[in-house]
Design a protein around this nucleic acid. Structure first.
Length: 112
DNA sequence: ATTTTGACGACGT
DNA sequence: GACGTCGCCAAAA
């Protein structure tokens, strides 16, 4: 039933499930989808998500380093950073402070 | 159908 | 530990 959706939609779905004040990495989402080695695809999917109907909290998705790699893809320069800080996440120099502390595992909420 | 790329990740140097 | 290269998979040109 879920395979009907494109890889993108699956990424958006998981990204939307990210609780506030939590962040995750592209690889984690990719792994949850079964495309563990396709972390890049997650980023690609999120790229399209910036133009879809429900707002996808792509700002909560960062790379494994906790670095806001995609912040440049947002409307403004510090949009992503500002949003994260609004949720209680400390961002310093485009990087999430205590990244692993705010890290959220998609498999934690998603049950196959 | 083929080639290029792309918001990453892991490994090698 | 910083920098470089390869690998993965899927979509766009």
């Amino acid at each position: 039933m879920k395979e009907d959706k494109s890889f993108f939609e699956q990424v958006w779905e998981i990204t939307r499930l990210i609780p506030e004040g939590r962040v995750t990495s592209y690889g984690a989402i990719a792994e949850c989808l079964g495309a563990a080695r396709s972390a890049r695809m997650v980023g690609w999917a999120l790229n399209a998500s910036t133009n879809i109907n429900p707002h996808v909290p792509a700002h909560r998705v960062v790379n494994k380093n906790g670095l806001l790699t995609g912040k440049f893809h947002f409307e403004g320069y510090n949009i992503m950073q500002d949003l994260l800080q609004s949720e209680g996440i400390i961002v310093i120099d485009n990087k999430i402070k205590d990244f692993e502390k705010h890290f959220w595992n998609p498999s934690e909420l998603i049950e196959e």
